[in-house]
Amino acid sequence: MGLNLVQAWSQAKQRLEAAGLAGPVIDARLLVEAAAEATRTDIVTDPYRALTPEQEARLADYLARRERREPVSHILGRRGFWKIMLQVTPHVLTPRPDTETVIDVVLKDFPEHAPWSVLDLGVGSGAILLAILAERPAAKGLGIDVSEEALAVARDNAAHLGLAGRAAFFRGDWTAGLGSESFDLVVSNPPYIASDVIETLEPEVRDYEPRIALEGGADGLDAYRTLAPEILRVLKPGGRFAVEIGFDQKAAVETLFREAGARDLRTVKDLADRDRVVAGSK
């Protein structure tokens, strides 16, 4: 006798709990939905729908991978962020709810129908840039990343979201090659984890996320030392910036931007009440 949806979800939760994983309820539901080609509504309204043998086998594979601490986003190849769904691969940082604080901050500064320009430095999957463009239909953006594999993911995400006509991407080292280009808004979620902290991270991050998107040097601040003066250089007068930071980096990052000439500096907390975004203007 095969599994039905509610049995599959219950057994999946038990397996992930036994493996000591955080968030087993949500992870189990997401894996069951993907394996059984079902929705959350299906589980509620049609809980006794049987899985096919192929779907059971797929679920077993997904659960075994999750037990090995592979992130759900890598298993499924996608992750929701803000109001959009993004493709995710091992070549890009998995978008996190903390980073949505950047979106919340910048949208308040720009009216919906203003034709403003956005630069996303270290664009990765395109999460920040594409979430902004999806909310501001008159805006256009440029995403830069040193990883060609990451840029391929960002381009695919832009195409799938119908935003390819307003988003351009190219490979580069932060602002190198931009010349005299200037922007109304610059955003970035740079690598900010200190090198000696990397090995203490959860396996989902340490073993599966791209190291280049995590490691910020001995004190985690290497990227900001480069970015602070460069962001101010490529901003238009009166333009604004917002960068994600580590929970304990407020003072150091604010100082770097203040020394670079930034004005109106402020640090915004995320939903967990941790310092998360430093924002300011030129």
Rank of each mutant, 00 (worst) to 15 (best):
E244M: 08
F170R: 14
E199C: 13
A168G: 06
A150K: 03
R166K: 09
L21R: 07
D248Q: 10
A228I: 05
D156A: 14
L86E: 02
E56L: 11
V277C: 04
Q11E: 15
S180P: 06
D222A: 12
T267M: 00
D275C: 00
L256K: 02
E33L: 04
L256N: 01
A12I: 00
I75E: 01
N189M: 11
A150P: 01
V205I: 14
R15V: 10
I193F: 11
A114L: 05
Y224E: 01
A164V: 05
A279R: 04
D98K: 05
L86D: 03
G179V: 07
G177P: 05
T175S: 07
G177V: 08
I103Q: 07
R40L: 05
L121G: 01
G143V: 01
D173H: 12
R274L: 10
D61E: 15
E17F: 01
G80S: 15
F257Y: 13
E37G: 13
F183Y: 12
P97D: 09
L271S: 07
A176K: 11
R58M: 12
L151K: 02
G126Y: 04
V102F: 03
A242S: 02
V146F: 10
K282T: 00
A38L: 10
K13G: 09
G217F: 03
S195T: 10
R225Q: 08
V243S: 07
M1A: 13
T175L: 14
N157Q: 09
I75P: 02
E254Y: 00
Y48G: 14
F257M: 04
A228C: 07
S147P: 02
R276V: 03
T101V: 08
R66P: 03
R171Y: 07
I84F: 14
L30N: 09
V102Q: 04
T52F: 12
A28S: 12
A28P: 07
G20D: 05
D42S: 08
I43K: 10
G280M: 00
T255S: 03
V118L: 12
I245P: 02
V72R: 02
L121E: 02
A223W: 04
A19V: 00
L151T: 00
E199A: 11
A158F: 06
Q249W: 13
D184Q: 09
Q14R: 13
G179D: 11
S195A: 11
G220A: 14
S180F: 10
D42C: 09
W116R: 02
A242D: 01
D46H: 15
S147L: 08
A34L: 12
E100N: 09
E259M: 06
S125L: 08
L232V: 06
G143K: 06
A194Y: 11
A8W: 02
